[in-house]
Design a protein around this nucleic acid. Structure first.
Lengths: 134, 134
DNA sequence: TTCACTGCAAATGATTTGCAAAGCA
DNA sequence: TGCTTTGCAAATCATTTGCAGTGAA
């Protein structure tokens, strides 16, 4: 539930114009609580909401929002990209059967951080718990 | 450094014939310590070793070995699949710039396991520490 | 003799890109 | 007016698949 003003602000900061398509997609993404969307799914949802936007623009917009810090890309499946509206670092449950991706609400932390290879620094820590039906 | 006999044994168990291509690829994969390979990289390596094998067969073989439990697939990048010769659960360092994937030697465990969604069970826990140059 | 296996080339599917038309500052 | 943005269709790229030929039991 990110406020409209914040979206505008971040678009402006990123040098992105608040076009009809970007605002409409932002509304779908941010006015419904935390979400995990694929480009295809967002496009379908836009169509249903009678928003005229091409799939190419959905892809562009997702990447631009990610660079602007409004979204975070989550890698759980080689066959498609997921974008998460929750941008701080947190773990995920991934249900392989359904393709459903969920935030892990509890704090998941590593018991201890391993030593890094020389000359490197951490750019992110991904924790994915893969689920199947019990 | 998996022994030849074990590879044969696991191929037999999986109902896979020990063909020239499978044995040659197994040798490249398992006789050089722990490795993380993409299909493309393994194909190039095979060519250099004068092993005649098509890219399609490399793909088939990687998947068959994975199903047979000789390899584990690691998801770190939507643009390509990595296969790990170390099959027990362990974390990875992924260097985004170079595409290099490394095992984390220290034991990385979660500080505590979160509650799972109802009706699900864990099929795997992936920990990936993304690295960039310091 | 049969069924598995391989290689080739074509198909696939998600994503990206080139470019002309349309939109916003 | 001048730079962005969009949409379409074509291009890409890793991966998969159809199928005829090859090989192993």
């Amino acid at each position: 539930m990110r406020p409209y003003a914040q979206v505008l602000e971040q678009l402006r900061t990123a040098g992105l114009r608040p076009t009809r398509q970007r605002l409409a997609l932002a509304k779908l993404l941010f006015e419904n609580g935390p979400r995990h969307m694929t480009a295809e799914a967002l496009h379908v949802e836009a169509q249903k909401a009678a928003i005229r936007v091409s799939l190419a623009t959905v892809y562009n917009t997702l990447h631009q929002f990610t660079e602007a810090g409004l979204l975070r890309e989550i890698v759980v499946d080689t066959s498609r990209s997921y974008f998460d509206t929750t941008t701080y670092e947190h773990g995920h449950f991934y249900h392989e059967g359904s393709g459903l991706l969920m935030d892990i609400e509890d704090q998941v932390q590593l018991a201890h951080m391993p030593n890094l290879p020389a000359g490197t620094k951490i750019s992110g820590v991904d924790v994915v718990i893969r689920l199947s039906d019990a």
